[in-house]
Structure formats: C-alpha cells, structure tokens
Simulated scan of single mutants.
Amino acid sequence: MSWLLLSAAILALFIWLQPMPGNFVHYLFWKYTSSAKPMTGYISHAGASIYYEVYGQGKPVLLLHGGLSNKLSWFSQLPWLVSAGRQVILIDTRGHGESSHGHIPLSYPVFADDVRLVMDKIGIASTDIIGWSDGGIIALLMGLETPQRVDKIVAISANFNPSGVLEDNGAADERFHAFADLFLSDRIRGWWSGAGAGHPDLAAELTALWQSEPQLEHEHLRAITAPTLVITGENDVIDLPHSGTLAQMLAKGKIEVVLGAGHASTMTHADQINKLIADFLQIRRPE
C-alpha cells in the first residue's frame, strides 16, 4: 500500500510540475540518442576557466543562464533551437557549472568579457543572445558595450538596476519552488549552481552583487540598438513596471508578459517562452 501511495504521489507531482519533467526527459533522450554532439572547450580569463558547448549548424544563438544555475537550465530550449537550424552556444557563467571562479570579484562587466572571449575562440563575429535573469543583464550590457557583436536580444526576467527586484514575490513560481523544496537539498543546490560545497559562498557573493548591480541608466538603455524582446512573468521577482520601462527605454524594445509565470518561466512555461522566441527570431516554432 505504501508503494502505491508513493507511486500515486510521484505521478501527481509529475503531472502538476508539467512541462518541466516531460521536457527534461525529452532533453535527456535527445542528448544521449541524437547525433547532435557538442564541440566543447574552455577559455582562460582573469584566473578562471570558462566552459562552453556548441551544438548544431547555422546562424548562432547564445544562451546565457541565470545566477545560481548552469547551462542545463536551457533543457527546454536547446533541442528545439538545434532542430530549428541554429548553432547554439551554451556558456557556464564564471563560478557556475564547469566554469571556475577566478581571482577577481564577480561582476556583470567581467561576465560580459568572458562571453566575448568565448565568441572570439569559436570565431563568431556576432550572434543573437537569449539571456535569462543574470544572463539577460549580460546580454543588455553586451548590446551597450559591443553593439556590432549583438544581432537580437531576448532578455527574460532581467532588470537594469537593483530597484527592479521585488523583495517578496509572493506565490511566484509556486510549482518550481515546490519542486525545489522537495528535491533540492543543499547538496543538490550546490550541484545545480556548480559550486558544490562552495555554493553558500557563491550565493552570498551574488546576493551582494544583486544589491548593487546592474546600474544601467535610461541613456544607456536608449543606446542599445539591437532589436530586443523583453519577456517577464506575471508573478516575476522583477517588478512588472520595471520591465515595462526597460522595453520602453530600449531603442528597439518590445515586451511580452507570460501570464501565471514567475522567475523560472523558461522551465515552468517553456511552451509560451519558446513560441515568443521563435516568432521574434523568425525561426520555426517548436512542434
């Protein structure tokens, strides 16, 4: 009887958490059975080794994950983007995943420098960028500092200064937090960020960073000329008016609000996110 109850509970949780489990199973099947094997490598910068993976052929698109996660957070987007005929570049942000921390403090300008050096190593002159959370901030900074290297930007749940982050996001990402509370022990959280036993130190450093950066003024945003799609969740930790201001201030910005979504919309609301990305980048929608 206990096994039946446990099985029923797991099945109910699997259904409630959709589409995350289904998408992750699809990603694992794709990764280990398809012929799309990545080219992998590292670049060295400021004492750190920055890890990257390159999948597929075609016009490049760079995926930049959020803080305290890793490249695996794109499991709902990677297989589809490759099948749609794009060359997809994944990077583990400094201090995350398979990238080491280095000997300098973490900052968005340093993250952006790391990304540009990866592009140089691969031989990519310019690229579309899809960035989630911290990754979206990095994308905006690259659009400001090196516009010739950025074609289009999709900035998902990104803020342009610390005032845009809500202290209490209420019931945002209810399903994701339920999953995290049930399964993400401190050890698993350390695996997810890639920091292992050093996860608390990484979390503390990033929390301090989030309180002081980024510091993009309205004139900075107006100087970003790349067409930019700002995506935010209805219940995001990024204040909705802040996201609206971001889209309004950008030279070529537009905004889409995903109803019911929180900060982890790339995972919890992947179908909606992928359709928005496909339409903006003018590529085939996922089937």
Rank of each mutant, 00 (worst) to 15 (best):
G260E: 07
L229S: 04
P227G: 11
E234M: 02
M249G: 07
N235W: 12
I231G: 00
L229A: 03
A251I: 04
D236L: 08
S243N: 13
K254Y: 09
T228E: 11
V230G: 06
T232Q: 03
L246W: 06
Q248R: 14
D239M: 04
L229N: 12
L246S: 01
L259N: 14
V258W: 00
M249T: 12
H242Q: 06
K252F: 12
V258M: 00
L246I: 12
L246Q: 07
L250I: 08
H263V: 03
H242R: 09
I255V: 13
T228H: 14
E234N: 03
V230D: 00
A261R: 03
P227Y: 14
G262S: 08
I255C: 08
I255T: 05
H263Y: 03
A247F: 02
A247R: 02
A247Q: 02
L250D: 10
K254E: 15
G244H: 10
A261C: 13
D239V: 02
G244W: 05
H242E: 02
T245L: 09
L240E: 06
G244F: 07
G260L: 04
M249E: 15
P227C: 11
T228M: 12
V237G: 10
L250E: 11
S243T: 10
L259D: 14
E256H: 07
A226C: 13
G233H: 02
M249I: 07
N235R: 15
L250H: 14
S243W: 02
A247W: 03
V257L: 06
G244V: 05
M249C: 14
E234T: 01
A226Y: 01
I255D: 04
M249K: 15
T232W: 05
G233W: 01
G253V: 02
K254D: 11
P227F: 13
G233R: 02
E256W: 03
D236T: 12
